[in-house]
Amino acid sequence: MSTPQLNVKSLEKYYYTNNSITDKLLMAEQESVKAVDGISFSLTEGESFAIVGESGCGKSTAAESILNLRTPTDGEIAFNGEIIFPEATTNREVRTEFRRQTQIVFQDPNSSLNPRMTVGKIITEPLLIHDIGTAKTRRERAQELLEEVGLDSTHIDRYPHEFSGGQQQRIAIARALSIEPNLIILDEPVSALDVSVQAQILNLLMDLQDKHDLTYLLISHNLAAVNHIADRVGVMYLGEFVEKGATDTIFSNPKHPYTEALLKSVPQVSLEERRRDVELLDGDVPSAKDPPSGCRFHTRCQYAREECTKEKPLLHDATEHADQQSACFRIDDDHEYWNSESLQ
């Protein structure tokens, strides 16, 4: 088997409260919020992997931790076989190379473009950072990229506010492409856009992936978009993966009750009729400050039994042949779960 392009092992990101100098002097008790609590996955070149879940489940934090925009609390991240986190075990060139090979596209295109820079300057910023080309060649590259993402190259000296949301997202994509990366992280790339524009952007992303042989890590709560783009998917709940595997398998035959509920909440997996948010799940998402014991989903799970509150289910292969792992006792016919009391 070839080396995966991105390999994430037991990634953790905790936030602490009461962390100021005075709190330390007063020895106030620290409280932690486990935004990302030990997720692992790997991506091979040219593949699309999606992390899905409700808002607040930690998926965006996971993306930002992988890029080291937020320093992870623990875990290991390797890019093309080279360790890039923990930093102590890595070196500067590896990190610079990772920055060069990885780009990100954010949800809100308005906030992802500096309002005081022209489009040309915005698009070529990654080139400037890595000192590639001259001012002239960078400008030519920007024009080329504008055409490639479907914009008018004569608009290079305009400011972001002169464009619509969809156009702004195209600019953000052009910026991500400028440095010819291998891996692009797409953090809810279409959720802030009008429904009519969403399909266009998704198609653009797929065309670009084919053309440049890109690897995508998609972060989304939009199952339709995930189904459209992703080869594999990881379903996240309260900082953990509850199910992971090939998109087709999971979407057609979910093994985890949470995935099942998520899919049910989308009446039809089509772009036009997709729902903006996953709301059909009963109850509120429990606080990540104080997650439920045992299986974190048991407070909202229709199949929950006594056993689920005691023991924590781990990811296991759910089927013999397909790529699907699920963190639910119900995939194991011999599990103690079947003998315990129902919580309903």
């Binding site: 990100i104 954010f106 809100d108 906030s111 992802s112 910023e125 950072i129 910026r175 992280i185």
Partner: peptide
């Protein structure tokens, strides 16, 4: 926390460059 700052950081911009440019 603006995304353009995050994007620049993800591209490897130094803190000084981010403070100056963004």
């Amino acid at each position: 926390s603006q995304n353009y700052v995050q994007a620049a950081k993800a591209s490897g911009a130094s803190s000084w460059a981010i403070i100056r440019r963004h």
